[in-house]
Write a protein that binds this DNA or RNA. Structure first.
Length: 419
RNA sequence: GGAGAGAUGGCUGAGCGGUUGAAAGCACCGGUCUUGAAAACCGGCAAAGGGGCAACUCUUUCCUGGGUUCGAAUCCCAGUCUCUCCGCCA
């Protein structure tokens, strides 16, 4: 969420900076409401002052007047509240401003490749897709999931389930032991307010699974990513600067409706309603966001390098970035069956955008109270890493070689095969 | 599901109708002392919003929303959350 105070100061450049996002926002209404709001506040404060003085004086002759003022205040407050609600509605639906590094563009076709890494494997046979491999092995079962649950779910079985679990442990170990993240095992449900904090609500309610607990209680949602719950650890806090940078990592299931992606990636487990993901979150001093983004992205690519999977790093263009992000790198892994790179991680700096929503602040050396910077990144999406390993490490006979770094996590298993 | 207790500043915790934005302690910052540090002592230290070029100033905020009152952190009502005990389940 944006700070109106700052917007007011230089409205034209605010407008201009959001142009890259290609959205139509009614800026005039925003400005108009802001002005009205401030007028009401001023009127209200004048009356409040008058009332306060009367009650301080304890002059009985003025008591009747004080009552009159009260009803006048009430009237103005009501009007002011309506204006403020409208103002907040508009404001909470405006995305973050793209950083100056971010290239202009409409959609994913305008994203720019930063670099490539790793060797694309050469096969002396036609490589199979992960779902063919998985079904042949009897270790991926989509039909069974359809029976028990519905579409876009999968049963992962046997050695592939072990591989999935190994990936989670392996990634967590690296992030905790080498990269300095604190491991968290968080709740998988988040309150509406928490979802607002990271920007999933109000605009993207359609993508979320809502869970009904008891009537009359706060609304709850299954987390679409651990980012939501990890970032909100610092909600409503004024942090001690010694606490920064704070780095959290969690491996959790994620739940997404994938509304609007009907017909996209319907085969296989690329796009599921439920998937595991290892998520990194950093809370930093606001001017350190860019450095932290590079660091975090390196943590993500580091995993791919250890797994010896070929990937490329992309910087997302303004039109393809997420709502809360100011700058995003996508890491894409090579998938032989598709003969192209697919997203396996997304690392974003959200500048102070989420902190303003969450009311997360810290005091700097000058004792100024400032909003914190927040970042999040996948390190990595487990389901897609599983796919990438299956496809890149597949053998002619349909077996899959286990990457060396994972073997200690899999009882030294070297090959996943039918037998 | 049954019975109680509570929600106050970065934290702990007083206040229970009238300069209370709120005692005290801790933490933090500055200073004195010290070769340096610790201790001790002195001083400072809430946030949000409005107005002003600024110094500054005004308003709001003691869980949330209503109510009583000239006046509420303090009284009344509703809600949310937390804790304790009993029951039930993991």
């Amino acid at each position: 969420m944006h700070n109106l105070k700052i917007i007011r100061k230089d409205f034209e450049s605010f407008k201009k900076s959001l142009k890259k996002r290609l959205l139509d926002i009614d800026f005039n209404e925003l400005l108009d409401l802001d002005e009205k709001n401030r007028n009401f506040i001023q009127k209200k404060e004048t009356l409040e002052k008058e009332k306060k003085d009367i009650s301080k004086s304890k002059d009985k002759a003025l008591f009747a007047k004080s009552k009159e003022i009260s009803s006048a205040i009430e009237k103005i407050s009501k009007e002011q509240k309506i204006i403020k609600t409208n103002l907040d509605n508009i404001l909470s639906n405006i995305p973050n401003i793209p950083h100056s590094d971010v290239p202009d563009g409409k959609n994913e076709n305008d994203n720019i490749e930063i670099n490539k890494s790793g060797q694309i494997p050469k096969f002396d046979f036609t490589p199979k897709s992960h779902y063919e491999l998985g079904e042949n092995l009897g270790m991926l079962d989509f039909d069974l999931a359809t029976k028990t649950t519905g579409s876009r779910f999968v049963f992962v079985k046997n050695k592939l389930a072990l591989l999935e679990r190994a990936l989670s442990n392996f990634m967590l170990d690296i992030h905790v032991l080498k990269n300095g993240y604190e491991e968290i095992s968080p709740p998988l449900l988040a309150s509406a307010n928490t979802m607002f904090g990271t920007g999933q609500l109000p605009k993207f309610e359609n993508d979320q699974f809502e869970v009904k607990l008891e009537d009359g209680t706060d609304r709850k949602f299954l987390i679409p990513t651990a980012e939501v719950i990890l970032t909100n650890i610092v909600k409503d806090k004024i942090l001690d600067i010694k606490f920064l940078p704070a780095r959290f990592v969690a491996s959790t299931p994620c739940f997404r409706k994938e509304a609007g992606s009907y017909g996209k990636d319907t085969k296989g487990m690329i796009r599921q309603h439920q998937f595991y993901k290892v998520e990194m979150v950093s809370i930093v001093e606001q001017e350190k966001c860019m450095d932290e983004l590079e660091r975090m992205t390196n943590c993500a690519t580091g995993i791919l390098e250890l797994l010896e999977l070929p990937y490329r790093k992309m910087i997302l263009c303004s039109g393809d970035m997420g709502f809360s992000s100011e700058k995003t790198y996508d890491i894409e892994v090579w998938l032989p069956s598709e003969n192209k790179y697919r997203e396996i991680s997304s690392c974003s700096s959200c500048s102070t955008f989420q902190a303003v929503r969450m009311k997360t602040r810290y005091k700097n050396q000058k004792k100024e109270t400032l909003f914190a910077g927040t970042l999040n990144g996948s390190g990595l999406a487990i389901g897609r890493t599983l796919i990438a390993i299956m496809e890149n490490y597949q053998q002619k006979d349909g077996s899959i070689t286990v990457p060396k770094v994972l073997r200690p996590y899999m009882n030294n298993l070297e090959k996943i095969s039918v037998n």
